[in-house]
């Protein structure tokens, strides 16, 4: 129930040096093509809100939860889909479309991001090990 301490996924092979891995939830807790938010603490001790999306093929993507165009923490509540085959999420407030793998904004819907924010989303590596979703924060 509480925020988990940064722990590397012990039994998973793809432990990459660098990011600080956090076990977030069981894969089963994610509904395909819907997002959830998670609170993750990075190596600098900063708490970050992350949006996690499970696709129909079982892969999981993580991007920042902050919608840079609305200034609200809502990205997990967007609609998941594809644009020319690339998995995407649409911001629920003003419908910008972002590539899930990179966080790149594909359609800005005629809007500018809030002052001081990038128009693209930060994306984070995800590893599913033993049915548990891990997010890596730098």
């Amino acid at each position: 129930m509480s925020t988990l301490a940064p722990t590397p996924p012990t039994s998973a092979p793809p432990v990459v040096a660098g990011p600080c891995w956090t076990a977030v939830c069981p894969l089963d807790a994610l509904v395909p093509e819907r997002g959830v938010a998670a609170l993750v603490t990075g190596s600098d001790g900063e708490e970050v809100q992350v949006a996690l999306f499970r696709l129909v093929d079982g892969t999981v993507h993580a991007v920042q939860q902050l919608d840079p165009y609305a200034g609200a923490n809502v990205m997990s509540r967007g609609i998941v889909g594809t644009r020319r085959g690339t998995p995407t999420v649409a911001a629920p407030v003003y419908k910008q479309v972002f590539e899930l793998s990179s966080g790149r904004c594909l359609e800005a819907a005629g809007k500018e991001p809030r002052e001081g924010l990038s128009g693209d989303l930060a994306s984070y590596p995800v590893v599913v090990a033993d049915g548990v979703v891990h997010v890596g924060l730098g």
Partner: peptide
């Protein structure tokens, strides 16, 4: 593909 925020 898997649809989008328009068709879904």
């Amino acid at each position: 593909g898997r649809g989008c925020d328009v068709c879904k």
